[in-house]
């Protein structure tokens, strides 16, 4: 029996157990401290939905063999461009949201294609290279935001050059998904549209993974030699996976922004990849394997943890942002744990 327990612990991973236990502990604390449970659950649901697609973007990357896609900011930047164009076109509501998605998909597909080609050239060091591709892209786009020819007063600084650092969506499509078919039971508000959007994306991804191309992609990620012996074009499959990941990054940021209410430009996307990576890892994925269920579970756990931690921490320590520190430790801790599992280390 202890052996079996040991096996279960090994399979789940100690950090994951700690995080889950900690989450439960926080929830109990929240109840004891008399925090409004209903709004905490609502917030968790919203944050799960808003981050979900970004986390989902990790799945095709991991499965096609490029590992944890730290280069997610590349997709995010594409999504931002799509979002800005939809504002520039002076659209509002769901239409604006859809147009933003429709514009950003081809842009991110093209970017993802070249990104995939690059990653094919650096096999074995994808994670390090993708991190810095992401950083470079964000810092290059900082210059881009300064010089891009947008004219809408909502986007531009009223005086001087360049685009605003945050662009408000209140009059455009803030919370269009959140409020779509939303209802509330006993103080808990369900952001039906947002969750539906996330789940639809998951469903499409799940279906894709059962298509011929999807199965080929999984085989490539699992064992590239096997795949090429089965007549699968390894590089092509990896590019497809990278493109999908980039596209989901773009769509993800638009879904995120509509719920958040703002687009954040310049340095803001820099670290967003890490949060997504951490979430999928917390859900049970590794650098080599990920499932849709890992995405849903991981996003919920990670976002839930952050949502609950904030008010709880504020009750205990009034000063400083304990929840933020917690986020840094948890997310980087889980990534480190996953990295120690990549090489096995025992060579």
């Amino acid at each position: 029996m202890p052996k079996k327990l040991q096996e279960t612990i090994n399979r789940i991973g100690i950090p994951r157990l700690i995080i889950t236990a900690f989450f439960i502990f926080l929830c109990i604390l929240a109840v004891l401290l008399g925090l409004p449970i209903g709004s905490l659950i609502s917030d968790t649901l919203v944050r799960t939905g808003m981050n979900g697609v970004l986390v989902l973007a990790m799945v095709p990357g991991i499965l096609c063999g490029i590992g944890l896609n730290f280069g997610l900011p590349l997709g995010i930047v594409c999504g931002l461009i799509g979002g800005l164009i939809s504002i520039e076109m002076n659209l509002t509501g769901l239409k604006a949201f859809s147009v933003a998605v429709l514009i950003s998909v081809p842009i991110s597909a093209v970017v993802g294609y070249f990104y995939g080609m690059l990653l094919n050239k650096v096999k074995g060091s994808e994670m390090m290279v993708s991190t810095y591709v992401g950083f470079s892209a964000v810092s290059l786009m900082c210059i881009g935001w300064l010089v891009m020819p947008f004219n809408s007063p909502e986007i531009k600084w009223p005086i001087g050059k360049g685009l605003r650092t945050t662009i408000t969506l209140t009059s455009r499509y803030a919370k269009v998904l959140d409020n779509l078919f939303s209802f509330s039971i006993g103080g808990i508000v369900f952001p039906t549209g947002l969750l539906a959007f996330f789940l639809i994306c998951c469903f499409i991804m799940w279906r894709f993974l059962r298509s011929r191309a999807g199965i080929a992609m999984k085989a490539v990620g699992d064992n590239p030699v096997f795949a090429s012996a089965s007549g699968i074009n390894v590089n092509k499959s990896r590019i497809i996976g990278t493109m999908l990941s980039t596209i989901l990054g773009a769509v993800g940021i638009i879904a995120y922004a509509q719920s958040f209410g703002f687009y954040q430009l310049y340095q803001a996307p820099m670290m967003m990849g890490f949060a997504a990576v951490a979430a999928v890892l917390i859900g049970g994925a590794s650098a080599k394997n990920a499932k849709i269920s890992h995405v849903i579970l991981g996003t919920f756990l990670f976002q839930g943890l952050l949502t609950v931690a904030l008010p709880v921490a504020n009750k205990i320590v009034t000063e400083g942002n304990l929840a933020e520190v917690l986020r840094i430790i948890v997310s980087n801790g889980i990534i480190l744990y996953a990295l120690t599992k990549v090489g096995g280390g025992g060579e």
């Binding site: 199965i215 064992n223 096997f226 007549g231």
Partner: peptide, 26 residues
Amino acid sequence: SEDRRGVGLLLDTSIEENITITAMQI
């Protein structure tokens, strides 16, 4: 293949997918 575990199999995938994947792709 002579390298069963390296080239011949997807070790973490089901028997049925291992049997059918090549015919599926080709």
